[in-house]
Design a protein around this nucleic acid. Sequence first.
DNA 1: AGCACGCCGACT
DNA 2: GTCGGCGTGCTC
Length: 830
Amino acid sequence: MTSSSPLYAQVALDVPLFTALSYRVPEHLRDHIAPGQLVQVPFRNRSKTGLIVALSTELDDPTLAPKIRDLYDLVDPEPLLSPHDVRFLSFVADYYLSPIGEVVRLAIPSAVRVEGIKHYRRLPEDQRTPAPNAPQTPLSLELAGALASLSDTEPTPVAALRESHAELTYHRLAELELRGLVEVTYQESASLKPKTERYFKLLPRPRGTLTGRLGANQLQILKLLDGMPSLSLPEIREHIASPYSSLKALEERGLIESWEEEVYRDPFADAPVEPAPSFELTLPQQRAVDAVARARQAGRFEGFVLHGVTGSGKTETYVRIIRDTLAAGRRALVLLPEIALTPQFVGVFRSHFGERIAVLHSGLTAAQKFDQWRQIRRDEVDIVIGARSALFAPINDLGVIVVDEEHDPSFKQEEGTRYNARDMALVRGKLARAQVILGSATPILESFYNARQGRLTYLAMPERVAARALPPVDIVDMRRGPHNPTAGPSSLLSTRLLGALDDTLHDQKQAILFLNRRGFSPCVVCEACGHVFHCPHCDVSLTYHRRMEALRCHHCDFSLRMPESCPECLHTGIDRKGVGTEQLEAHLRELYPRARVARLDRDTGAGPRLQQLLTSFRRREIDILVGTQMVTKGHDFPDVTLVGVVLADMSLNFPDFRAAERTFQLLTQVAGRAGRADSPGKVIIQTYTPEHYSLLTAREHDFESFAERELAQRQAMGYPPFGHLIALKFEGANEGATVQATRNYATAARRLLRTERAFGDAVSMLGPAMAPIARIKNRSRWQLLLKAADRALLRRFTIRTLELAGHFDAGQPHHRNVRIIIDVDPLNML
DNA sequence: AGCACGCCGACT
DNA sequence: GTCGGCGTGCTC
């Protein structure tokens, strides 16, 4: 055999390096290696597990040749991820200018990653069978020493063996395998292991066997097992308190047999399973289903914007599309914005599709996540439902991706790799030739615009099911003065909203009041000297929380007992300005002492309390629900007939070019909670800017007019969807160093703009500028915003800028303590 | 991220 | 004389 040209593997490691590292593939592994496999590689002076992202016969940088080392071994003969998945991960890393290892970590739960560490166990002399190509020479002294240090009962991790025998490489140790001296196993070294259960079944009983002298327990077990394929130990224990000795006795007599089997830890344990309602599709629903079917039958990728008003039956449409997809032998992925919504959603899906569903979201325990992931990878489920991270689930034969409530900002990850699951769903769909459905009552302008440009297919569902009307929306001008007779005695709630509340309570219906600010008062001021209480760690004012009698920061965990007097002038009169949900709740309790008022926000709806509150509201144990954004999300409460928006201006005044769009979305979504069943609903919006087009178009349920108006503004400013943005964000404890780092990058960018025409003409830079919240958790925040109409050009420009600023160099002396965040397609400009 | 290397203060 | 501080540089 002549030695062929070397083969290199690009391996992604869990280290913050932008690129994968290259390793030579040893000759004996050449035919067994593929992208998507986990491998053990030498890294510095230790061994690490990494994922092969590519194989090549040449190095992209030949000067690296002398540094290249051989990889040690495969961790598992089976690839962990499909080539499809690997390509997708590489794309994501590339697109978001993010280290590949960090992206791989998104896709593989940490518990799975350590799966299959190679172990050796010394075989007893009589069990040794050398391979035909084993060396005939005597075993070297070092290897004999290593062999001697192994146990013949307990497997030892090979990495541990290498530590005690530093002179031996993995490669040399492999000789022990070749000579048949050791047994090779791949074992989890982590705490998480697949859970197993002991199963029992009846053995066919030889005719005429005496069954005499069986205890009562033993007889009962035989009776239980009779007619059952098998039963697990817990199932047996449901009937017999302590069956252990009896089971053992029965097995010894050869009457039953037992074995260990992997079982999955079930995260659905508390998911309500609702009976599958049979339904007929409305015409628009049917059209949507048919449009998707055409793409599926043609076997091509297609992206759809499913624009369905609140209550138009989007979920039923998804169900039907997924059913067709499964019938065609492919699988489905459903992405939801909030884990809070999953139990209900999963319940609906289980009633339609049974057990072959997995869920993935950050609320699962590590063990549950581990099990769900393994089920998905083994093709044991057909539908995966989850929050944004489920985008990376290792689903084979993916046929359809549904992104429900695609406008929701929680699809954007705001740390690490700042991916947007909604955008990347389109990419994954394209790679898999799947159909991608982006569903919302308020599609983002990018979707609307792309549909108009023909890149996405627009599917409209403009009417609510069962001919229910969209609720009428009333805008109340809260500005005081003789021109405004509707302003009532309460500065918080207008007479019109109070009147509507009276009616709702009188009719024994429910109301939702939305106020996008938690706490009692968002700002606390000394009435004598004007001192405003600020967070000592963040550049924001403190919020007064009455229940805790404390001032709290909403950006860090700082909190302070509500002081008696001003720390500046010792004056005892301290004013609480502005209104949050806590105060609104208290106010309503005073106004309606007999109504049941509850509040839903991050303070009251943390963890399991959220489900409790929602359930309790659905059961009509609450009359008025006060809440933040959390009440706007797709919940379905049939008896809500009134929705009040206490102050619509809050999101309008946000320092962000998406403020108008956010406001429109918020108002439309919250208004959609009203009148979802047989009783008609009503919406009242209070505002100080009643003439704003976000409010006026929301009042008319007129998405198109809003979109036209907003698109015109975006075009004028070159903002998305007409231009693309990449934000460079700088955070550091030292303000001077942070500014300096920002300046260095700005200088690099400016130089490129000056020297290269292609960039200078097409790219613009805003900043260096202080971030709208200039300091959070004692870290100063600065930013640069890069903008261009051509996405590819903007990407190239950013990479060149980063290179020029030394961003990819290891270690940058000037910016040691400044964190530099690259935010591609930023959503949150704060 | 880790982790080794390196050049300056208080200890056997 | 050395132990160890954490600044800085690098990982195929």
